[in-house]
Design a protein around this nucleic acid. Structure first.
Lengths: 185, 185
DNA sequence: ACGGCGAGCGTACGTTCGTACGCTCCCGGC
DNA sequence: GCCGGGAGCGTACGAACGTACGCTCGCCGT
């Protein structure tokens, strides 16, 4: 069997296995032993590579936010004008709300952790900051901020609704929130 | 000591204790024993009153959604015109995003469960349906749907942001999403 | 007065958990 | 060739877990 000396990707496998396990079974059913089993590494590796569950989770979710931001990037780097950008945002919303469920579930788990524990909020701050950077390529800062919140809400509602709303509604919401010249106060 | 025979509120106490525990420590740290300890009931009561953790959680979150819908109701039953309704929605968003954290955390936990397990989605369906009913008192169905998603996103972003956005931004977003006569397609 | 029964609880069992500790074995210095 | 050290793992231990099972005891029918 591959020893750790010959297998430098052991840490990576552990992190991926942790995310997979969380996505499949939820934070409540995560344990060192189960992660180890899924990653195909010995139990002892867990405490060797990570100082505890929290440490492991923070690092794992760090990888995850990188991934999500990359998805944002993929959708938002190409469009050339605000109209195309709105279309791209709609694509993004629909991709994340009806895709593999993995990204959706992991986002939820992270936000849940962050809602209770400030330590995890570092991760969400960074995530929000970076996604806003992408949106600000196409919209002014205030609009970007509102749109970011709307995207989050649309994804969640689409994913949880019995009959998810169609693309037209998504687009209309995006158009409204990005419409220029609404009365400010 | 109060026996179960003399204490018909035992079930209720268990459910409240379960929600409190989840809010404080997260689903991951919930166990029959801990809930029992917090509720001040013997361990045996747990398996007697509920057929398992899932059963208990579903019932507890049922109470929780009732509570949240009541909050929606409290804010949205009084306003008389769309302008006042927008103000009320902004109040709602700010109340839920900077209040006790309890409601926020529990919403998150429920959505996380629902994202993975269809059984819990029944609860979120009902929740969304009822909150939309309240919104439809003031806005047309499509707008209500978009606004509902926006509210969710705004609450979450405000609660997790390093520097939460101010009321003006909340109001602007609400005004934009509820603005009449946006180009449909 | 008394017997039975079922709501409700206490407890013991087998399992699973995180972590501390000691062993292995590779690699670089001599 | 040999030795020392540290990266990395296997394992054993005590705490915590869910649940099955049997007991208690108040109430109702007689």
């Amino acid at each position: 069997m591959a020893t750790g000396h010959a297998d430098p990707q052991r840490r990576e496998r552990i992190l991926t296995a942790a995310l997979d396990l969380i996505a499949d079974e939820g934070i409540a059913r995560v344990s060192h032993r189960r992660i180890a089993a899924r990653a195909g590494v010995p139990l002892g590796s867990m405490t060797y590579h990570f100082s505890g569950m929290d440490d492991l989770l923070r690092e794992a979710f760090g990888r995850f936010t990188d991934h999500i931001v990359a998805v944002f990037d993929a959708y938002l780097s190409t469009p050339a004008d605000p109209g195309q950008a709105a279309e791209a945002v709609a694509d993004l919303v629909h991709a994340l709300s009806e895709g593999s469920r993995r990204d959706l579930v992991l986002s939820q788990e992270l936000c849940t952790l962050a809602a209770r524990r400030p330590a995890y909020r570092e991760l969400t701050h960074e995530w929000m900051r970076r996604s806003r950077v992408h949106l600000e390529k196409h919209f002014d800062p205030d609009t970007a901020r509102q749109l970011d919140a709307l995207i989050e809400g649309l994804i969640l509602h689409r994913a949880l609704a019995r009959e998810p709303h169609g693309r037209a509604l998504t687009l209309e919401a995006i158009a409204r929130i990005t419409a220029p010249g609404t009365r400010a106060r």
